[in-house]
Every structure is written in structure tokens, then in C-alpha cells.
């Protein structure tokens, strides 16, 4: 039947055109014109890749700005979320623990509200950002541990802040970039 032959031929030609020529053309040109972006916006130090500026990594040490909780522990080869719903007991128990931990680590009073992004997991598990409120909340802790003045840290946050535009994106800082800059700041700790 001629329709079967036509279906096969159209399928084959479309496969070559949209499945091979199209992605190869985009790859070729993107690699030529935007090699940095097309290869993952990688940040290198001393020829070693330390991460991608777009991909969050786990920051749990008290000396760094901490990142958001991640249900995949920032495994960038397997993105995903908790998918726990708004009445999930499991979610609420986890959030309760996270709130206690954040309050204890940052010396907050027992009733002080905690920014939502610091205690709720992201959609990709790889969120590279935290809100400015979450960064500011961590300033006293980081200042104390690293012996850096809070003013220096606040200036660092301000410099790295990206603002919301008409509700598109929250006002935020990129955690990896912020921590890379933090590493460059001279510590004044006498015990070294």
C-alpha cells in the first residue's frame, strides 16, 4: 500500500532532518559562538572544575553561605524533588528539624520566622540560589567563624544580588559565586 511506504519515507527523512541535522547544527554553532554556556557555564580554578555557576552544590559547613535543602543531595547527575504535598506529615517533620537546625546554627530566637527557601527543597534539587534574606540571616554566623566584619559580608551580598523583575525570579544571590568570593576575603582570625 502506498500510504505505508510514504509513512516510512516521511519518518526516515524527518528523523534525518529534525533528529540529526537540526541538533548537530545547533551543537556546531553553539559550540562556536557560546562555548562557555553550551558546555555548562563551568567555573575553573587552577585548571580544575569547581562547579557550574548554574548548578547548586551542597554547602553545609558553617563557614560558608549554606544552600537550600535538596532531596537528591545536589547530585547533578540525577535531578529531582521531594514531591511531598502540602499536607505531608513527612515534609512537615523534615521542615521542623531544618527550622530548629537553622535557628540553633544562627543564634535565632525560638519564635523567629525562617525564610522559606532555607527550609524547603527546590524543584530540581540543584537550585544555585538563595534569597537575599536567607543570605543576610547567615551573616552573623559566617562573620564570627571567619573573623570577617559583617559589613564586608553584607557588601559582598549586595554586590552579588540579582533583583526580581515584575515578579519574575526572586531577589537572590548565587551561592557558589558568593562563597568563591568569600574564600578570597582575608580572614582576621588570630588563631589562624
Amino acid at each position: 500500500m502506498k500510504e505505508i511506504k510514504q509513512a516510512l519515507m516521511v519518518f526516515i527523512l524527518m528523523t534525518i532532518l529534525t533528529g540529526f541535522l537540526y541538533p548537530m547544527a545547533v551543537t556546531g554553532i553553539a559550540q562556536e559562538v557560546f562555548p562557555y554556556q553550551a558546555n555548562g557555564s563551568l567555573i575553573k580554578q587552577k585548571n580544575k572544575v569547581v562547579g557550574s555557576q548554574l548548578i547548586g552544590q551542597s554547602f553545609t559547613s558553617p563557614k560558608y553561605f549554606n544552600s537550600r535543602p535538596s532531596s537528591i543531595s545536589y547530585n547533578a547527575a540525577s535531578s529531582g524533588a521531594s514531591n511531598l504535598g502540602p499536607t505531608s506529615k513527612q515534609l512537615m517533620e523534615e521542615v521542623k528539624k531544618r527550622i530548629q537546625k537553622i535557628r540553633a546554627a544562627n543564634g535565632l530566637s525560638p519564635n523567629q520566622p525562617v525564610p522559606a527557601d532555607l527550609v524547603l527543597g527546590s524543584a530540581s534539587g540543584l537550585d544555585p540560589d538563595i534569597t537575599v534574606q536567607s543570605a543576610l540571616l547567615q551573616v552573623p554566623r559566617i562573620a564570627k567563624i571567619n573573623c570577617i566584619s559583617p559589613a564586608t559580608l553584607k557588601a559582598l551580598i549586595q554586590k552579588n544580588t540579582i533583583h526580581s523583575f515584575l515578579g519574575w525570579g526572586m531577589t537572590r544571590v548565587n551561592v557558589l559565586k558568593l562563597n568563591l568570593e568569600l574564600n578570597k576575603v582575608q580572614s582576621h582570625c588570630s588563631h589562624g
Partner: peptide, 17 residues
């Protein structure tokens, strides 16, 4: 429980909002 404004950011990205 103490999440500021009860904002539901579970499963949401900060750069998206």
C-alpha cells in the same frame, strides 16, 4: 511552624519564584 509568611517554596526554584 515558623516558615516566614508560610511561603510555599517546596518544589520551587528561587530564580523562578
Amino acid at each position: 511552624m515558623g516558615v516566614a509568611h508560610g511561603t510555599n517554596l517546596e518544589g520551587k526554584e528561587v530564580r523562578i519564584g
